[in-house]
Design a protein around this nucleic acid. Structure first.
Lengths: 254, 254
DNA sequence: CATTGTTGATTGGTCGACCAATTTATATTA
DNA sequence: TAATATAAATTGGTCGACCAATCAACAATG
């Protein structure tokens, strides 16, 4: 079995990825500065020796990351920001490397606790109603069935909305799918933890109602701490599995 | 001038967006469940009355979000996760609505403070060196020139790396470009704050060296608090400007 | 000389045709 | 009949040609 160690992850580099790397290199090396206009698509794909479709896909992806900006019938320019931080960006962003569930959960705790505290400060009456609705849905699902991971996360998402911080909510939405996929893969919520979770949710909601910053913080932290512990125990097993199956995590893109 | 209030933001809904909305609607309404296979591209674009290019763009975007998964020569399926959370996701994620600089900075404070604390716990000798290097570069740029926004943020990014939390770092990378663009637009760091910033950086680095969690937390918080205050003062002006120019913020995608 | 109008080249956007891999259906054979 | 081989149809992937909008150069006009 030790033979397995002699294999290393095979990286499949699609044409699109190769193009992205070239453009990225041009930017980081300073040959393309913010505001510069890229050569026309036709010339570029001629030089690169690829079809225009691939090039356009690459541009679209970079545009999505905010690196490029393409102006119809005019050209594609390098967006004037974030260049220094570009190094290693594209291949890193959201490419949660699969075995890094620990970071994922740790980050989740940070986002959750803070959004809960903010929610306690800023929640409106309507927010309370929304959060309650999610709580009821969660409880109902658990009483009749076993798994309710999505309803669970929905509760947390409603809290994020009540925090009135759109960025915080967006970031939670970004990491949520990855957490979901992990939970479903490993059946985290199998045992009797579900009922305990609902009780904790109730206490969290209560603290938000009372606008008790301290309480909501500690309750949320306590609620998430089991999961954080759990994540540490599966770390090793996780590492092993990822070497075998070509599991490419959550939202890793193409 | 009050007439301006009678105008409202014009929402340009590209064909791709329309397709995404339809697919999203099919999923949220339950007509498409996780694991289901979508009709073939040809049939779909026939029904929708759009070209295959548009449809493929839409699919690619949804795949990027982790909603769909397309298997070559086989079909496109609904990924089995995150469906409950889907409602409102696609149009929300990272569509930092432009005038929400407040949320942006608030979130930054949260991420920064926590990553700094983690960095104090986990930093290696090499991390220290990297952070120092960034600090020197920042100071050098300030001593000779006026603006050093990118170098400033680079310092913070190095701290995020020292936190050994890849997700935290990724999230910071995501919001960094938006912060940069704002800083550059509004010339935040114009006055003599630059020198003060370097001094604060030095104290933060010192605290990380000493692995002093408390100190690093309060120092970082103090360092960022001016910016948070500042963001509140420009909020109103910001709102106004955004109505006029069709500024679509940072990484809003297509 | 300055301004305007026209024309031609270039741009990104769009579409339809073709390709290889896959799946399905059908025919062949033991 | 069951298993296998073969052929036809369907799939997503790729490419090149065409489109309308834009821009640049230049000529006509005041």
């Amino acid at each position: 079995m030790e033979l397995l160690k002699n294999f290393s992850q095979i990286v499949i580099e699609t044409p699109v990825d190769k193009i992205i790397n070239q453009i990225k290199q041009l930017i980081t090396s300073g040959q393309l500065k913010p505001g510069d206009k890229l050569p026309s698509e036709r010339k570029l794909c001629d030089v690169l020796g690829v079809g225009r479709t691939h090039l356009r896909d690459a541009i679209k992806k970079l545009e999505f990351y905010g690196i490029l900006k393409t102006l119809p019938q005019s050209g594609t320019v390098v967006a004037g920001m974030g260049i220094t931080a570009l190094e290693g960006l594209i291949s890193d962003v959201l490419k949660l490397e699969g075995n890094d569930f620990n970071s994922l959960v740790e980050t989740r705790v940070i986002l959750e606790v803070n959004s809960a505290v903010l929610a306690a400060e800023r929640r409106t009456g309507n927010d309370i109603k929304e959060i309650e609705k999610a709580l009821f849905a969660h409880r109902a699902k658990i009483e009749q069935a076993d798994h309710a991971v999505e309803e669970d996360l929905m509760f947390h998402l409603k809290i994020a909305e009540a925090s009135k911080n759109s960025v915080l909510k967006s970031l939670m939405l970004i990491i949520t799918p990855d957490i979901l996929s992990y939970f479903k893969q490993h059946d985290v919520c199998g045992d009797g933890r579900s009922n305990k979770a609902v009780e904790q949710h109730e206490r969290i909601l209560e603290a938000i109602k009372n606008q008790d910053r301290e309480a909501v913080g500690s309750e949320m932290r306590g609620h998430l701490v089991d999961i954080l512990d759990y994540s540490k125990t599966i770390q090793v097993e996780q590492l092993y599995n990822n070497k075998i199956e070509s599991n490419n995590g959550g939202m890793t893109g193409t």
